[in-house]
Structure formats: C-alpha cells, structure tokens
Simulated assay, not measured.
Amino acid sequence: MDKWLRSTWFIRILSLFLAILMWASVSSDNTSNPESSFLNGNSTDKEIVENVPVDIRLDSEELVVSGVPQVANVTLEGPTSQVAPVALQQNFSLYVELNELGAGTHEVPIQHSGISSQIQVTTEPETVEVTVERRISQSFQPSVEFLNESELGEEWEVGEPEIEPSSVEVIGAASVLSQVAVVKSMVNLEGVDSSIEARETPVKVYDEEGNELNVIVDPSTVSIDIPVARSQKDVPVTFQAEGEIAEGASVTSITSDVEQVTIYGPQEVLGDINQISGVEVETDGLSETTKKQVEIELPEGVSDVEPETAEVQIEITND
C-alpha cells in the first residue's frame, strides 16, 4: 500500500475517480433541485399581468369602432430572467389592428408588442368582436339638470337657464347616435346664494335608460347662466296710532316716505299677502306733531323685509 501511495500514476488515477464521483453528485442534485436550475439560468416562470390597456390602431378619422375592451389580462411564460422583468415593468402594449378592415363586424385578435420572442404570450380574451362604422354627427340642444335644488331653501327661486352655445354636435357611430335620448349638463345648486354666471359645465349624452353613451361632443362644455334669487314681493304699508295722546289733542294723520316695502319668503306665503296694514305707531302722551322711527313687523311666514324701519310723521292738532 505504501508503495502505491508513492506512485504518481496511482495518485492521478485516484484523483480522476474522485472527480468523476463529484461530477455525478452535482449533476444529480441539479436534476432534482429546481433551485440549482435557477442558479444555472435554466428555470422557467409564469406570470399573469391584469388590466393591461388595449389600444386601437385605426388611422381613418371617418370610421368609429365599438366592441374593443378597455383592458385585457396577459399570461407570460418563459425563462425567469425574461418573464420577471417584463411582468414587473409592464413595458409592453396590447392592441387591435383595424387599418385593413372596412365597415362591418369583425373577429380580430388582441396583439402585443414589446415582448421578447422567447416569451409565450396569451391574452384573455384572445380575440374580440369589433364593429367598424362610418362616423356621423348630429346637432342637439343641451338641457340643464339641477342637482340639490332642495338645498336652496323655500324662499329661493331658480329662473330659466341660458346656455351658450345653444346647440352641440354629437359625433359617433350611427347605431350609437340612434340611442341618444338626452343631451344635458348638470349644475349643482348646493350652497348657491346668488345668480350663476358663465359656469363652464361638461355636456353628457345618455340613452333612455340613463346610460352614458360613448360619443364625442363638440364643444365638450357649455357656458351656463342661471338667475337665482330670493322670492320677493312689493306690498303697500300703512300705519296706525297706538296709545293715549295728551288731553285736548288729536291725531289728524300719520304719513311716511315709505309707502311700500319688499317682503321675502316662500312663494306660497307671499302669494297670500297683498299689504302690510296697521303698523303700530306709539302715540302715548304726544301733544304736538312728532317724527318717529317705526319698526316694520314681519307678517307670519315672511323671513325678511326691506326697509326694516320707516320714519313716520304724526300730525297732531290741539283743541
């Protein structure tokens, strides 16, 4: 044995045998251990990227398309070193190519760009049914819908709105325009305490069921003026003496520069008031002509009056 250990050839043969054993061991581990395959760059991966936008490739401005989903899901399969960065960065795009198609209904695939050929790509859905139609336009007069009108309070009145421009062009497919039921702008009246002037408001288009239609509106906004004011009414006012005047004196007249006042309140209340009569003027103990400031009392249901006071002249004569 000592003689073999001293032999150069014996040591070389033994080293070769040990090297073969080690190679066989490592090869076996690589076959059974996926992590070893990953380290060697031979692993595969599968990733699902959801809600990827789908573009429409159509150069003609005379055509309009319906049926293309806004987003699709993408499954990526291939080498981990390729799939992982693509799934993470999402630096690719999905599209449907429609430039070679004419008017009508077509089944077209969802295609992709920006993904390596080493990656297998599957989209969900894989194909879509699209309808290509001629683009048409039609004029409509937009209306105005008031939101939160009840928040104004009972004494406020909203007048007839004025819209500029008075008509807009609705552009889209003929099949979609045939569904147009309402073209309107919505104005929120919550917190409004004065007239609305030149408010820019988007124009929306709806079908009979209240679904917003996918069309182009030109112009997309309109300018709206809406008169908003408190309900008011001008009524005459009269005055009467209240109290015992001095002995031997008498009230011949009570006059004022204020002959009528403006009252504010709910319209149904104002409709029943035609005058404010008998505003009391204190004359107790007076013996000569006198001027006084008199407060004008509010009739029931009235929220305000202008002016709130009036100067009166009490004409008194003595026997």
Rank of each mutant, 00 (worst) to 15 (best):
G278D: 12
V281G: 05
V279P: 05
T283C: 10
T289K: 08
S287H: 02
G285N: 14
G285V: 07
E268K: 13
V269M: 06
V269F: 01
S287E: 09
T289F: 06
N274Q: 11
K291N: 11
V281Q: 02
S277E: 12
V294A: 05
T290W: 11
T289D: 03
T262Y: 06
N274R: 10
E282F: 09
I276E: 10
I263M: 12
K292L: 10
I273D: 02
E259R: 00
L286W: 12
I263P: 01
D272M: 09
V294G: 00
K291L: 10
Q293A: 07
I263A: 07
V269G: 00
K291E: 14
I263Y: 10
D284P: 07
E268T: 14
D272N: 09
I273C: 08
T290R: 13
G271V: 04
E288F: 02
N274V: 14
S277G: 13
Q293N: 06
E268H: 14
V279E: 10
I276L: 03
V261R: 00
E259N: 00
I273A: 03
S277M: 07
E268F: 15
G278M: 04
Q260V: 00
D272P: 00
K291C: 02
V269W: 03
G278P: 14
V294L: 00
E282V: 09
T290H: 06
P266D: 01
P266H: 02
K292Q: 14
V261Y: 01
